[in-house]
Design a protein around this nucleic acid. Sequence first.
RNA 1: GCGGGCGUGGUGGAAUGGUAGACACACAGGACUUAAAAUCCUGAGAGGGUAUCCUCGUGCGGGUUCGAGUCCCGCCGCCCGCACCA
Length: 872
Amino acid sequence: MSAERYNPREMEPHWQNVWNQNQSFIARNDDPRERYYVLEMFPYPSGRIHMGHVRNYAMGDVLARYHRAQGKNVLHPMGWDAFGLPAENAAIERKQNPGPWTRQNIASMREQLKSMGLSIDWTREIATCEPDYYQHQQALFIDFLAAGLITRKKSKVNWDPVDMTVLANEQVIDGKGWRSGAPVEQRELTQWFFKISDYADELLAGLDGLEQWPEKVRLMQRNWIGKSEGLRLLFEIAQGSETGATSIDVFTTRPDTIFGASFLALSPDHPLTGQLAATDPALATFVDECHSLGTSTEALEKAEKRGYLTHLTVKHPVIEGATLPVYVANFVLMDYGTGAVFGCPAHDQRDLDFARKYDLEVNPVVLPPGADAAGFVIANEAYDEAGTIFNSEFLDGLSIEDAKRAATAFFAERTVDGRPQGTVEINFRLRDWGISRQRYWGCPIPVIHCEVCGTQPVPKKDLPVILPEDVSFDQPGNALDHHPTWKNTTCHQCGGAARRETDTMDTFVDSSWYFARFTAPQATTPTDPKAASAWLPVDQYIGGVEHAILHLLYSRFFTRAMQKTGHVAVAEPFKGLFTQGMVTHETYKSAAGDWVLPTEVLIEVHGEKRTAKRLGTDAPLTIGSIEKMSKSKKNVVDPDEIVATYGADTARWFMLSDSPPERDVQWTEAGVEGASRFQQRVWRLVGETAALNEQSKDIVVKKDDKEAVVLRKTTHRAVHAISDEIEGLRFNRAVAQVYELTNALVRAAGVMAAAPESRLDALHDGVSRLVQVIAPMMPHLAETCWAALGHQGLVADAPWPEVDPSLLIDDEIIIPVQINGKRRGELNVARGTPRADLEQQVLSLDVIVRMLEGKAPKKLVIVPDRIVNVVI
RNA sequence: GCGGGCGUGGUGGAAUGGUAGACACACAGGACUUAAAAUCCUGAGAGGGUAUCCUCGUGCGGGUUCGAGUCCCGCCGCCCGCACCA
């Protein structure tokens, strides 16, 4: 055994080769063992992997390798989310097709991922931009269409003026496009929609069963779906029947406050508003103003509540002879409920603001507990908490909940326009998912438009509808639409001329089912239902929390749609979800204000002060805040360089140590060097152990002495703890346990000379187990050590070390002794020492005797095997 | 505004209501070396006594408990999500 330093540059490619030749990580669908499907969110092929990928895939790989060692049939695949705008924008810049660009990126990122030594089944690799993937997506689209899960409708949509495409509601963040950051405009277009809102209730209820999801994500989805139960209430028109309308539908969750109603408000987009505006130029102007303001949410937020008083009035539904004015108000959304509301200013802040502005009545009808009915007035704050109904005739004295029921029942009995005046209605915030994108680089929607036969799906036998690659990006807009011939086709029904749909699908469709495709990536149908039902749901899915709503909600809907159309057997795609934190780094700025790459920075440490200067020029630099790694701030570290300098294992180890995986981790040079030192430390320990073995091969190993037993206990305890931490995805704690075990083994190896013949086996066994438990995290190092220790075969194929339960318990334990809750001493006793014996021993302790000063303790709390507290 | 999370040494962070600060990074001192790197050993929450002892200490203020970083109530600060949703 040589004392040479471990050389990852040499060993890492070697073991990657061995694993590859051994086909160590190929999952077989006919393998009868228990299955485990671990998946990390697949990357967008931007060209280079970043540290966020390293962290994400290191975590997934630990689980994959751990569960494989547990004897499971592990599926750990990788693919590429390859359609999308960056490729198209790059193509426009370079005037070349996104296809070759994307495929090149995939090739180089694949090599980078392989250099990380991930235990991935590369035979299952898929790329969403290839026809062998997207043709199945087109087949799914056709099935969904036939099953009534897709509609085509004209509606207001979010238009991103920079990316020149439509966006789904989920893709509009703070009124801006999620990708371009441009303020989103409203446009009316005919678009394809997935009817996700049909599943709103089911998607909401399903969240309760997702026990292995972070509560935070479940909450975000709950809020996004936004279920609210209320009443659809009809207000009879008193004045204004010349419009032809005889009533206005309103949605409310507070029918209990109906006696406090003082006005009605219509959305500027309400059909009745349009009708009125046709003959009322002032109203038309008002509506236009609302629209010009209404493009960005920011503007909305600051916008004052404004209204326009129409000449319409409605009958108050419960106060005989009273009428209410009808306004058009800028704060009423056409999207939600019925696009019309009744205002009860006393109990809704927004209504109150409006009422104060237009001098409308404020009639309180909910009395706070303990308040005086005569003296209760509303000032500038609406009262929206619990109370008793008053000023409300037949509802008086009821609680809010009871009054809601009573009012609901009351209106259900009455009729307006031959309809019940009130019907229970449930509203959701969730809108249908608009998937049409006016972009080239996406999955073509498999539909044709025929003048005679209408819009119809492409027959499945004609799939795939291939995305042509001979397109030009000379003009702005959708290159597919500009293609000279592609969109011309013939109608398969009448044989006449027809036009292909030139919109492509939102790329979130691509990522909504890739996890299912991985279970049988060569199947001639979208899935092999047998394989899909065997593997799904994914046992552990890992990715960034930024997908908490978009991708994860779409995938949950899509899985249900696939279930309905017979492609999968489950409703929920991901049994366990883990959202990992980001990778951050310090930022550096030059005197001129330019960001500077960490590789160009030299950090100097003077005691506790750190200063930075530019490598080469020695120009002083400012050390800035710690932020998420981003190209714009240049605080990025290239994984390739780290792998070349320290090796993949070091990068993986560092990513897993220190910070809890769900939190952000700060990348530091010092941290990486620490990880690298640890790698060498393990290697030295293995070298010493192997050398001791070699020197002592003629020695007859004697029975364990006391030290050896201690060492075995330490080992078994550590293995037990590490297994537990890995299963719970607490990798930082697993790492800490590994450090402790290593420290113990290094110490033991150092004092071996004293009695090698009775400790050798315990040491060798301990070091071997150490190597096994670090294998999921530093797989290359582990293989090298495994071989150096003289083990046959690969550690990647070795079963996880078993733990001897008898070694986990100590016979002798130390019990802390407290006086008044403060630790004052300890007791060394045998495990299971009974209460009475403990009491006697505690009372004879020097400290206790001294502190008691001859008096008896007030109280003695004894928890056997745990703690003793003496109260004096 | 609504909802959720977090707050512990110089730093990242440990701690089923039971010895606060595991483990690591950084730092200081020492050993080895011609020297450096590497490695090994030692120290360290703060303050005092300088021995093995005492006091204070987990954002702030209360409470429950024999015992609270942990549970409850009220504040302060930071982060995230949603936001005119009737």
